[in-house]
Amino acid sequence: MNIKKQFNEALTSNNPVLVQLLGMCSTLAITTTLFNGIGMGISVTIILICSNVVISLLRKVIPSKIRIAAYIVVIAGFVTIVDLLMQAFLPSLSESLGVFIPLIVVNCIILARAESFASKNSVAASAVDGLAQGVGYTIVLVVMCIIREFFGNGTFGGGILGFEGAGIRILPQEYTTLFIILPFGGFLVLGVLIAAMQHISNKSAEKRKEAGK
């Protein structure tokens, strides 16, 4: 087990959103304020760790023919727990994330990690993998939230900081671009982020080639 390598991969070369291109729906839809991004990221991380652990524990019991259905039931159970807890303790967050909390069930990241990692590895390694991939996902969400909130609304930390969670104003209202908050901005910002990631990996591949010569 190599914790450092797992984290390195999840954050850079094998990032769930920017490289594996999974979990696009929630990444585009809810990244409008910082609070949303952090809330969604933490919920997905918790569900990812729990489902990875349970699936890894059951990996020798579940028959391979019905494994996908079994994974989905395990994931749906944890999603329901998180959904109900959030409704009880963080009603405002639950309202602003709306239908995207129950939709974590069909977030491809969780099913992909169950299928490609948890079903083949030990419990501890799967838990670390869940944490690492969850953190990788959360970081992308938070970066997108900060960018979209800054350009679209001119604020930072909407939902938690500032007066009644309105966020701290950085850019005056007149200079904001509403488009970045709208669906178009989601596609644009994610596209640019993935392009930046590709640029970095292209650069490092070139460097390695030169070093190899």
Partner: peptide, 23 residues
């Protein structure tokens, strides 16, 4: 298209433009 944008990123931006039209 710039090398970094090849493939998926440019497709995302194209989807964004259609979303803009749908608005």
């Amino acid at each position: 298209c710039p090398k970094a944008f090849e493939g998926f990123p440019i497709a995302l931006i194209a989807a964004g433009l259609i979303a803009l039209a749908f608005m």
